[in-house]
Amino acid sequence: MTYDASAREERGAVAESASDRTFWGRLSSWAPYRWLASFATASPRRQFIILAVFPILWVLTQHLGPMLQMLRVSLTDAYPVAPGVEQHFTFDNYLSFFGDSIFWMPFFRTLIFAGVFTFCTLIITYPVAYFLARHVSPKNRMLLLLLLLIPFWVGEIVRTYAIMILLGNTGAVNMVLRFLGLIDRPIPFMYTSFSMGVGIVYLTALYMLLPLYSSLEKLPKSMNEAAADLGAGAWTRFRRITLPMTLEGISSGCTLVFLISTGFYATPVLLGGPSTTVFAETIAGFFHVAGDQWPTGAAFAVIMFLAALLITTAFQRLMTALRKGDTK
């Protein structure tokens, strides 16, 4: 040991000065690196620019770029442009949306479905989040929450397929009902708005559960106790304290779930039927055929994005107003 250490020291003393022994020491005294470092850190301003240029370029070109390009394509009459053909600016793609009920019916259906499914998700997950945050000891809480997270790691397609098996004519639900003697012939759950709803609530529940849980967890227990001491019943306590105090979680959960539900493509295709065509399928239709349909598809995607944005913003405004009204 002693020999080793002293030998290394000797070698170190011969080869390099004491401060240069580590990798980092060597790096910082390496001439090209020193030149680079002093160039990059000459002033805080230069340092900041070097740090900021790449992220700013990235978000502009990669995050905003696709949306802007989609908007641009939606205002042209042909994309991709065939050689020798001139591209013209036009609003026709947007106008065609209002011209045919085959287009705007799925659009409104999507928005109504998304709204209804979001509400269902809220109703289903609120008691679960409430139970986890208020009735479970902190030690078990993580465990019980984790139990719910596991199925949500599984992908969209696999979970949609699982719902198909659950609700099919020879599926588990129909089998149980028949076994109990409640029905003679299977109830056709599949390919209806019901099966779509079950699937979409299944896929989005976690995005509602987590915001609700975190806002319920923050709520101090003492407030409820104080209200109980003052003679408020369980329902009054819930309505006057718990619900207003968790509006923030409700608002962010609903926004998230609404945005996600409007964007599902595979789930409506697999679980829905001809009477439940959603706008995502309409949009996708324009991209299966190559060529001149793209601008229309882009325009429809823009319409849908703006509508979803408008609804969620209005909803959040409403929730903020409700929150302020309560604290006054």
Partner: peptide
Amino acid sequence: AIFGMTVLPALIPGIISAIAFRIY
């Protein structure tokens, strides 16, 4: 503004993001 643009891709509904990426 940069923060807003950063989180944008996570907020765009699936089908719209797929279409936008396809075009881009």
